[in-house]
Amino acid sequence: MVKALADAVISAGNVCRCEGDMAAFVSVMVTVLIGTSLFEKTTRFYADRIEKRGKDNLFNAVKKLPFSEQEQRFKVLRDHVEEESANFAKWNGPLLQLCVILSIVLSLAGAFELFFCLTETIGKWNAFLFSPLVLYFCGCEIIALVVKSRQNKQINRFVCHASVEEELRIKGVKEKEIESIVDGK
């Protein structure tokens, strides 16, 4: 399938070269339009996935806290979640814009790669490996990993912080006290 895709890229490039300037121009425009749309959708998909992953991480971190801690530390937790959401907004907005601009540049590059038939000069497999599409997906995966790693660091710090406080928390609700309430004493 990979080989077939590489062949398709090469043959498309050959068509551009053979059919003259107009065909090449149309080919470039179509590739740019499809490429930009595809990249933008993929970028949004990645942004959503990163955010969902972040929320899941946070959810699991909160669940790890002792039950009674969750209510006592509700304000702290809420502030932390709000801070995390603000961080997402801060990072994801520009990240998304950057990816969209990058995707336009890359799809343009992809179109010109077809136009100039670079595949012929650098070889089938090299052309595929260094094609903008592959670079883009790799880039998105790297961004996702970096964001995840950064968030995990924050979550670990938050959970550790909580466990220190856990040591300080007042433990032991006495059954006798409840008994006295139940008995009306």
């Binding site: 929320k55 946070l58 959810f59 909160v62 669940k63 806290l65 039950f67 969750q70 209510e71 509700f74 937790l77 809420r78 979640v81 709000e82």
Partner: peptide
């Protein structure tokens, strides 16, 4: 905030 309350609910 929903995440925290949801986590609390699941724990309970």
């Amino acid at each position: 905030m929903d995440i925290i309350l949801q986590a609390y609910r699941e724990r309970f």
